[in-house]
Structures are given as structure tokens and as C-alpha cells.
Amino acid sequence: MSDKMKKLTVTRYNPETDSAPRTQTYEVPYDDDTVVLDALNHIKDQQDGTLTYRWSCRMGVCGSCGMNVNGVPKLTCATFLRDFEGDITVEPLANFPIMRDLVVNMSDFMEKLKRVKPWLIPKEEKSIDEGEYLQTPRQLEAYRQFSMCINCMLCYAACPVYGKHQDFLGPAAIALGHRYNEDSRDGARAERNKIIGSGEGVWECTFVGECSEVCPKHVDPAAAIQREKLANVLDKIKSFILPRGSSR
């Protein structure tokens, strides 16, 4: 590392001693390759072992190290210090309860994820001995983008609807439901729609669109949600016109 130094103002919260979060400023050396996570690791290793945050893969795929950097939800392993003029503020992801320092409690999402049934429910069961379900590259392309979600929670931190209404299923969960709905092998859209099409589902979304802006994997959850809205309405119209046998 070079001699260049950067000031990081980091949120600290220790539930055992603090009643509310406070901030602490550290100074770290950096060069062109230094990411925010490296800076935090430097602090933890050399200056203050009590600084608490999550991280793992350091290559933008495990989804652990999401934080608000200068107010914007970011994967800190892919956010370079060189891109910031002046000091940097590092806060825990917005809209989540803070467990400690930069660690947020995401059990709400884990609960919600399960509710959208994010697993394949085949149109017709096929035994493994019969081989794979056929799926053309084009059919794969129909849902591929929505299968790229790494559950990093940046979209939840960017979503004002979730900020205000914690019952909202939220961008990532709905996008994953959409991913299975769009999978040519799957046949359980109606079942998932019970939750995705409910009051806590797509209808709470006002399409602010920031979820898609901050998504590091270009999943575009906003698109998933709007498409689920449209599909839900079209289904209703269909079942209104053809009351029976209109599963899809």
C-alpha cells in the first residue's frame, strides 16, 4: 500500500453498552486496488479488533459484505476507495435492525424467502432415470437474469417501501419467486401467486426502481415485480373470462 491515507467514518453500535449507534473515524492507508472491505480489514487487524462486520468471498458473489457507503448500498468488496473524493462514511445496510456495528439482522428476509417457495415445482414430475428436463437456451434466457440474485440485501436497503412497511416481501424475494415462475420446467405460478400476488407482495411496490439501480448483479428486481403484477392481472382477467381451467 502507498502512503495515501483516507478517513473512514464507521457506524459503531454495541448493544451491550450503547442505546443508539454512534460513529467512529479511522484513518487507513490505501492505493488504487484498495476496496472498502480491505480498509475495514486493515482497521480490524491493525487498529481495532472490536470493529464488527460480515465478509467472506471478497469477489462479489457470496453477498455477505453489503453496507451503505456514503449512503448508497454497496458490496464493500467491490467498492474502491479510489472512487471517492474526501472521507467515506460506512454504515450498516439501511432498513434492517442493527445487530452490532455494521452487522444487520436479516432473519426477516430468510423468513420471507421461504414463503415465495423458491424451489422448482415441476409441471410434470420426471424421474431422474428419464434424464434431464429439456430446456432450450432461449427458455433458460427467460429466467436466467433473475437467478443471479446473491441475497446481498442491497435492494432492501434501497427500497423505501420496505423501509416504511416491513411486511413487504421485498425485491429479492419476489424476484426469486419470479425466477421460478418463468422457468419452463416449473408449473406452480398459481401457488406462488398466493403470496406474491397478495397485499404484502407485488401490490405494495410503487416502483421506485432503486432496487434495480443498486443491484450488483443486474437482476432487475423492479422488472420482476412489475411483470408479476401484469401476470397477476392477466391471470385474473383470464379466470374472469374463462372461470374454469385457467391455471396459466
Partner: peptide, 16 residues
């Protein structure tokens, strides 16, 4: 606060 159950109907009119 969860959205209303009738929301999909209003949304259809909203979109149109």
C-alpha cells in the same frame, strides 16, 4: 400496512 386485496383491479385501471 399491507396493500388492499383489490389492489390488482385498481392497478389495471391505473395502468390502462
Amino acid at each position: 400496512m399491507a396493500a388492499q386485496k383489490t389492489e390488482s383491479f385498481w392497478w389495471l385501471l391505473f395502468s390502462a
